[in-house]
Amino acid sequence: MAEQYTYAVARIRAKELSLLGRQEFDRLMACGSYEECLNTLHDLGWGDGDESTGEEILAAESSKMWTLLQELVQDRSVFDVFLYPIDYNNLKAAIKSVVTGVRSEGIFLPGGTVSPELMVQAVEKDDFSALPEKMREPAKEAYQVLVHTKDGQMCDVILDAAALTAIKEAGSASDNKMIRAYAELTVAVTDLKIAVRGCKTGKTASFLKRACVPCSTLNVDSLISAANRGPEELFAYLANTAYAAAAEKLKESASAFEKWCDDTIMELIRAEKSNPFTIGPLAAYLLARENEMKSVRILLSGKRNRISDGIIRERLRETYV
């Protein structure tokens, strides 16, 4: 029922006014130092005012965003499609920390659908029944692979593929067009990255087949076959797909490609600006905020490392507002 989000969407419209636009980014760019940037962020209402590092400010903003979204939707599972990467990343960390016996602080990302403690317990007991159904099998397989072969890369491949499958399934199950398109784009773009990296590092077809997940806008078999024939064949194949622009960016650099991915997602969600109902504008706000935080992280990192403004600007993402 689209009408159940009427209140939520109106509230999000009012919140969108506080998203950072071009002017705010110009103001941040004009800051002479990292510390000045932090002060400007505080002036713009970011953080709670008592944070002393950029990461603390970003964590506070992420927490504020999730508090708001949880307040607006009764069932948080509508956002699962955006949280699966966090879940599977935490699962990787849980498996590796248990198998290696190294327990480091801060290895888990906050905000997933499954608590990291539950994952650690499941791995320690070698009993994955407490995890969500779709996570059990890949978790068990990744754990067994790491225990028996110590092959960390294969462990990652298994869990990354499982994350992509979960995203794809959640996208297909959604009745929202934007969420479906987001899931498809995420899977296709990740397949593309895998194929390009696999091509450069000479991975076998069977390895790539294990890592890639089928999607509607890319033929995975043709992609893998092209990747195995070399970079020229791969880019020639991509030029005839919906991801020709992505291939051009990949030729340029990895960071140009990453920027293209984020800018394409911004393009995708822009249609939600004129949608007064459905979950779409809420999901768009979530992605816009994440994109904004990514840009702020890039900017802060650039300022801290005294990278030139020109290079920082090149890497800043398109804004939603």
Binding site: E3, T6, Y7, A10
Partner: peptide
Amino acid sequence: GMSGEAAAGVVTED
């Protein structure tokens, strides 16, 4: 009722 929900959403923030 429907427009009231939207109005309440905006007034919550502003």
